[in-house]
């Protein structure tokens, strides 16, 4: 029924629709694509609205006190910790991720066994559940290396976790750079290294950035891996060797005993704002980098 009406509607609109009449398969595909997009965004808007409706009424000035106490459930320390944690883990993971992607795409020979091993290990890494990372981080960074519950231990654990994401996306982006760019650069007498850093990598930046943004999403949303590594102290630590909880962890702790549900939703709103901010910032940076 619906389909018929839509077809009728369409024939009156445009030229291109006649093509759809000739190719009903294409028309159905187009409808499916539209339907999927509508479902995705309807779900998304519903979810965001759910968070806002539950959280916004509970955002109070006391939530932004400088020090956390059980009365105000302040998000400020957790906010600062989240940013510190994001920066730290990106500093560790991004160079490793980009360099290994460069190795895989630009240096390793096609079909090399070693490349396959690396690919398999990164895929394995991306499949390990965060709770296992958390346990591993606790035994290795916290206990074996003696760092204690600290931002640093958390950042290293998270860095391993996001490494495959950054590697995969960078790899795809590097592969998409046409070989003619490389050949042109070699033809002008540039060395391999120069070609990689001056020609290939800059054109791959949007792809790399997509990976970084996904990674940031995982970092700020992570709880299980951080609970056992960076600890759950609700204050800003003096150094990266101190323990502190991020916003997501803060939310988890607030919600786990059911005593601070309102504040937990309010925290979620702030977390959303933070993600929007970080994403906007990174697209600004990307624009700057691609222009330069």
């Amino acid at each position: 029924m619906n389909n018929h009406r839509e077809m009728a509607n369409k024939t009156s609109i445009g030229d291109k629709l006649r093509t759809y009449l000739k190719h009903p398969g294409s028309f159905i595909t187009m409808l499916l694509v539209m339907l999927a997009a509508v479902i995705t965004f309807a779900v998304l808007i519903f979810l965001i609205a759910y968070i806002l409706v539950n959280g916004v009424p509970h955002i109070k000035p006391s939530l932004f006190s400088l020090e956390y106490s059980s009365e105000n459930a302040s998000v400020v320390p957790a906010f600062v910790n989240t940013i510190a944690m994001t920066l730290l883990s990106l500093i560790i993971a991004v160079p490793f991720g980009i360099f290994s992607a460069i190795f895989l795409v630009e240096y390793a020979k096609r079909g090399n066994k070693f490349v396959e091993v690396i690919r398999l290990t990164t895929e394995t890494l991306s499949g390990i559940p965060s709770i296992v990372y958390g346990l591993f981080g606790m035994l290795f960074f916290v206990n074996a290396l003696g760092w204690g519950f600290s931002l640093l231990a958390g950042a290293f654990t998270i860095a391993i976790m996001i490494l495959p994401l950054i590697m995969r996306t960078t790899e795809e982006a590097l592969k998409a750079v046409p070989d003619s760019y490389r050949e042109g650069s070699f033809g002008l007498g540039a060395g391999k290294l120069r070609t990689v850093f001056r020609i290939v990598l800059p054109s791959a930046i949007p792809g790399v950035l997509a990976g970084v943004i996904l990674a940031i999403g995982r970092i700020v949303g992570e709880t299980a891996a951080l609970m056992y590594t960076s600890g759950t102290v609700a204050q800003i630590p003096d150094s990266i060797m101190g323990s502190g909880r991020t916003l997501a962890l803060h939310m988890y702790v607030l919600s786990s005993e059911g005593l601070y549900m309102d504040q937990a939703y309010a925290t979620a709103v702030i977390l959303l704002v933070l993600v929007v901010g970080i994403n906007a910032l990174s697209s600004v940076i990307a624009r700057k980098l691609t222009k330069a």
Binding site: L44, I45, I213, V220, L272, L274, V276
Partner: peptide
């Protein structure tokens, strides 16, 4: 919005 979806914590 899709990028935002990735940053929403599991809880």
């Amino acid at each position: 919005a899709t990028e935002l979806l990735a940053g929403i914590p599991s809880v």
